[in-house]
Design a protein around this nucleic acid. Structure first.
Length: 253
DNA sequence: AAGCTTTGACCTATA
DNA sequence: TTATAGGTCAAAGCT
């Protein structure tokens, strides 16, 4: 348990990226809140193109997480392991066990462009002290959507951490507004139109610190899952993520 | 022309 | 109360 890999977590959760997308949606219960800290095999990020394949939408729905009265701020973290220290452990002890809910997975579970199916607009970048890498701040471009994410990238372009804040109040757009995109984000958007696997923490909840919002959590999630997830998952473009996932599965064996 | 990124300045929370 | 760090704004330029 102490050395549970992310793949192990998935496996132990009955999750199969390939064949059980629906189960994955509803059955992914990462053991991050009490027992050991998931130790992902992130010692060295693979040099291959990162694929946004991890459906974060599952994480917040975990009863394990939501059962906690401390399910407050919606924050998900996707992080790659830095050189030495073990930020996963740090972060988990600092957040997952506390009031914040942060979930970390290897960066190779996330596309280089943080392609999660939504349109994001960068509104800022900052070099923070706690990390050697600059953070980029993104907002969801969907009208009235307050969802945000913070992406930390290493100098080599590798995403080392992604933090999601707030929730989308809308389903994942089928198409983005810039199919001809010229930037990294936009180019990622072009693949969004292919209906990639959604990465949608927000459809689950909106950013709130109010416990009463938990009611909306289940509502949003179930609603979206019924109406949108299945159809979206049904047309997943696995061109990138499958190899990654297979790799993960192999590593986890 | 619209929408995006960049980037320095400003605002705010926290110790 | 103040210093610092993190987060956001908004103008300018780019695609």
């Amino acid at each position: 348990m102490s050395s549970t890999s992310f793949t192990d977590l998935l496996a132990s959760s009955g999750v199969d990226f390939h064949e059980e997308d629906e189960d994955f949606l509803g059955g992914f219960y990462p053991e991050i809140t009490g027992l050991g800290l998931p130790k992902f095999k992130t010692a060295q990020p693979p040099p291959l193109p990162i694929s946004q394949s991890f459906a974060f939408s599952d994480l917040p729905d975990s009863p394990l997480l939501l059962s906690s009265s401390h399910a407050l701020q919606e924050t998900y973290v996707v992080q790659d392991l830095p050189k030495k220290k073990d930020p996963v452990s740090r972060e988990f002890s600092a957040h997952s066990l506390g009031s914040d809910r942060q979930v970390k997975v290897p960066s190779y579970m996330v596309s280089r462009n943080s392609n999660d199916g939504y349109g994001w607009r960068k509104y800022g970048q900052k070099q923070v002290k706690k990390s050697e890498n600059p953070r980029s701040y993104f907002k969801c471009t969907y009208p009235n959507c307050v969802s945000k994410k913070i992406v930390e990238t290493a100098s080599d372009g590798q995403i080392t951490e992604i933090i999601y804040k707030g929730g989308h109040n809308h389903p994942k757009p089928e198409f983005t507004k810039r199919p001809s995109g010229s930037t990294s984000i936009s180019s990622s958007s072009s693949s969004l139109a292919h209906g990639r696997r959604m990465f949608n923490p927000s459809s689950v909840v909106s950013e709130t610190h109010d416990h009463s919002e938990n009611s909306s959590i289940s509502f949003d999630y179930s609603d979206l899952e019924r109406k949108g997830f299945k159809s979206e998952y049904g047309e997943i473009d696995e061109e990138e993520e499958q190899p990654v996932i297979q790799r993960l599965k192999r590593e986890g064996e």
